[in-house]
Simulated scan of single mutants.
Amino acid sequence: MAEPVPLYVVGLSKDEPANEVLSSKFGAALEKVQKVLSHIIEAKITVESQNPEGSRTHYDVTASVKTSQNTLVYTDSGWDILKIADELSRKLEGELSKRDDKRQRESIRKKEEF
């Protein structure tokens, strides 16, 4: 089993519930993607909160995944941290379809007859 990817959440306090939501959802997506992108070094989620004292808080979230070849960056913003975490996880899992070369089975009709 591969070792877990270090995941850092910047911009939220450790006891805030949004921190736990982002860590768990994005961490699960990282585990899925690690099977295809095995060269992931670290992942960092940066959260910028706007109007935290009011009744609603607007979040601007940037997730960056550093690999040995390049850095993948995903951004999303909104009022609901759960929706943002789901969207960032979906964007990261989109890398699976980009990297998978054997997505379709070879057609039976195209096989040569012996």
Score class of each variant (00 low, 15 high):
V9M: 08
G94Y: 04
K83G: 14
A29N: 10
W79G: 01
E3N: 14
K66M: 07
E20W: 01
K32P: 00
H39S: 14
Q50H: 15
S13P: 00
S13N: 08
E106M: 07
V10Q: 12
K44Q: 15
G27E: 01
G78Y: 12
D86R: 04
S13F: 06
S55M: 08
S24R: 15
R99L: 12
Q69K: 12
S13Y: 05
K91G: 06
E42Y: 10
V21I: 15
S49G: 02
R99T: 08
Y74T: 00
L72M: 12
Y59L: 03
P17C: 06
K110A: 14
W79N: 05
K25E: 02
R103C: 06
K44D: 07
I40Q: 03
E87G: 05
T62H: 05
K25A: 05
E106L: 09
E93I: 01
V36F: 11
N70W: 14
D60P: 01
P6C: 05
I41A: 08
K91E: 05
V61W: 02
P6H: 02
A2S: 12
P6D: 02
Q50C: 02
P52Q: 12
S49Y: 01
D101N: 11
R56S: 12
P17Y: 03
E95I: 02
R105W: 08
V47D: 02
T67F: 10
L30V: 01
E3S: 15
L72E: 10
T62Y: 01
A2N: 10
L92W: 10
R56I: 03
S23D: 03
F114H: 07
S107I: 02
N70F: 15
K35F: 04
L30S: 09
E48D: 04
A28N: 13
L72Q: 12
S107E: 09
W79C: 00
K14W: 01
S38A: 11
E113T: 03
S89Y: 09
